[in-house]
Simulated assay, not measured.
Amino acid sequence: MRKELIDELRQRHPRLLGPTGEPATQPSILCGDGWFNLLDCLCGAVQAGADAKGNEDVRVEEIKSKYGSLRFEAYGLSPAEDAQVALAEALSERTCEECGAPGSERGRDGWVSTLCSNNSAHS
C-alpha cells in the first residue's frame, strides 16, 4: 500500500494503527491499495466495538496479504470484532488487492493474489 494511504489509515484510526510518525508503535501494513476501503471500514468497526465496551486492550500487530487474502492480526478482540475481521478477510478474497474491483485468486510470479480480470494492468 502506498505510504500516503497508510498514513491516512493511521490518522483515521490512531488507537489501532498508531499515530503517524511513531514507527515503533505501528503495526506493519503490507498489502495493495485496493484493500484501503476494506481496511478503513474494518478498523472503524473494530474501533467502534472496542470503544462501546471500553476495551482498551485491542492491539493490531500486523496487516498483510497472504495466499491471496487479507490477514488482520490483532489481539484483545471480542467475538463480535473477530467476526468483523473474518468478514473482511472473506471479502478480500473477492476484491482486487491492486484496484478494489471485484476479483478472484490468481497466480502471479509464483504468488497467489486476488486480482480483477484486468490483472495484466497490475503487473
Rank of each mutant, 00 (worst) to 15 (best):
A45D: 04
M1G: 12
L16T: 03
A48M: 03
P19M: 03
R10E: 01
C43Q: 04
A45F: 02
L77S: 07
G100W: 12
Y67S: 08
V60S: 02
T25I: 01
T95E: 03
S92K: 05
L42D: 04
A90L: 09
A45W: 01
N37A: 14
D82Y: 06
V46K: 00
L39W: 09
S123V: 08
H122Y: 08
K64F: 12
V58E: 06
G110K: 10
R15K: 15
E93I: 03
C116S: 07
T114C: 14
W111Y: 14
N119E: 07
V112D: 07
A80G: 04
E62H: 15
E56K: 15
Y75A: 14
G100F: 07
R59C: 10
Q11C: 06
A101F: 11
D109T: 10
D33C: 08
I63Q: 04
A48E: 09
G54E: 11
D57H: 13
S120L: 09
Q84N: 09
P102W: 11
T95L: 11
R71I: 12
G44N: 09
E62N: 13
Q47S: 09
L39Q: 01
G103T: 08
D33R: 05
T20K: 00
A45C: 02
E62P: 07
H13L: 04
V58T: 09
F36D: 02
H122E: 04
D109P: 07
C43E: 06
T20M: 01
S113F: 14
C31L: 15
E62W: 08
R59A: 08
V58F: 07
S117N: 08
F36I: 06
E62C: 09
G110Y: 09
V60Q: 02
V60A: 03
E105G: 12
V112N: 02
M1I: 12
A52Y: 00
R10C: 01
G103L: 14
E61I: 10
G107F: 09
C43S: 13
A80W: 03
K66Q: 14
C96D: 04
A50N: 02
C116A: 04
R106M: 14
R2H: 12
F36H: 11
R108D: 10
D40A: 05
S104E: 05
E56A: 15
R12P: 02
V60D: 08
D51T: 08
R2K: 15
K53R: 10
L38H: 03
S65G: 15
R15Y: 06
G76D: 06
